[in-house]
Simulated scan of single mutants.
Amino acid sequence: MTVVNGLRWSHVGLNCRDQKATEEFYTRWFGFARARVVEADGTRVIFLRRDQVYLELFPSSAEPIFATVADGPQHPGVARHLAFQVDSVDTFLDAAGDALDITLGPLAFDAFIPGWKTVWVKDPDGVVVEVSQGYTDQDPAELAGYA
């Protein structure tokens, strides 16, 4: 495998019906903060940052074209969902109260990883966001058995 020196994750660009509502959602629930605003050709793009992760918020008046199921759209070439890790899904949900649109869960996946629990919510534009606790990678020796 060839890895380009210095390669690292950069960002996800999101199309937003209401940039302000989308910015408030990711700021309030996931700790992002405005890092930059760019105006080009009459379009405002808002950059949000949390640690080394960025979200670019683009204005859009287009209607969604993909049907979404509880954990995200299932169309090839379309991201299924964004995902974040928390220490406790229950604490996250307690803090949210009724403010979040839960699409699925919370579900426990203890049969795969003890303590793995996930809930899926929608952002203001219908993007599904997964919130999990307890995920860990599989032992490399076990992975060798999968082709």
Rank of each mutant, 00 (worst) to 15 (best):
G77F: 12
R34G: 05
L107I: 13
V37F: 07
D94K: 15
I46D: 06
L82S: 07
T68W: 02
A96R: 08
T43A: 11
A96T: 14
A62P: 02
G42K: 07
V69A: 11
S60D: 11
A79Y: 15
S60M: 10
P73V: 00
L93I: 10
D87K: 09
F66W: 15
F109L: 12
E39D: 13
T91I: 14
V78G: 08
V89C: 07
R80P: 04
R44K: 00
R80F: 08
V37G: 03
E39M: 11
T91C: 13
F32M: 02
T91Q: 15
Q74T: 14
P106S: 08
V78K: 11
A95E: 15
A96Q: 11
S61L: 15
L104M: 12
V86R: 08
R44W: 03
D90K: 08
Q52P: 06
Y54W: 07
R49A: 07
P73S: 01
F92A: 04
V86M: 04
V69F: 11
G97P: 01
L93H: 05
H75W: 09
D51W: 05
G42S: 07
Y54R: 07
E63A: 13
V37K: 06
S61I: 14
A96N: 11
D110E: 14
A79P: 13
L93N: 01
A35S: 08
Q52E: 11
T43V: 15
H75S: 09
A96P: 06
F92E: 06
T103L: 00
A99T: 14
I46F: 01
P106G: 04
A67Q: 13
A111L: 13
D110K: 12
R34S: 02
P59C: 15
A67L: 13
V38F: 00
S61W: 14
D98C: 13
E39V: 07
F58L: 02
F58M: 03
G77D: 14
P73T: 01
V37I: 05
E39C: 07
Y54Q: 04
D87M: 03
S60V: 09
V86F: 00
F58V: 03
Y54G: 05
F109K: 03
A83V: 03
A108Y: 05
A70G: 06
G42E: 08
F32K: 00
R28Y: 09
I102Y: 01
R36T: 05
D87L: 09
F47W: 02
A83R: 01
P73C: 04
G97T: 07
L82A: 05
F58I: 00
V38S: 01
S88C: 12
E56R: 01
V53N: 02
F47V: 03
F32P: 03
V89K: 03
T43L: 12
R49C: 01
R50G: 04
L104F: 09
S88V: 08
V69T: 14
R34F: 02
D41K: 06
D87P: 06
F66S: 10
S60L: 09
T91F: 11
V78Q: 11
G42Y: 06
V37N: 05
A95F: 12
F30E: 02
A99H: 11
R80Q: 13
L57R: 05
V86W: 04
Q85K: 10
A33M: 07
A35N: 09
F84Q: 06
H81V: 10
V38Q: 01
I46N: 00
R34E: 01
F30Y: 08
V37H: 01
A62Q: 15
W29A: 00
G77L: 13
A96S: 15
R50T: 04
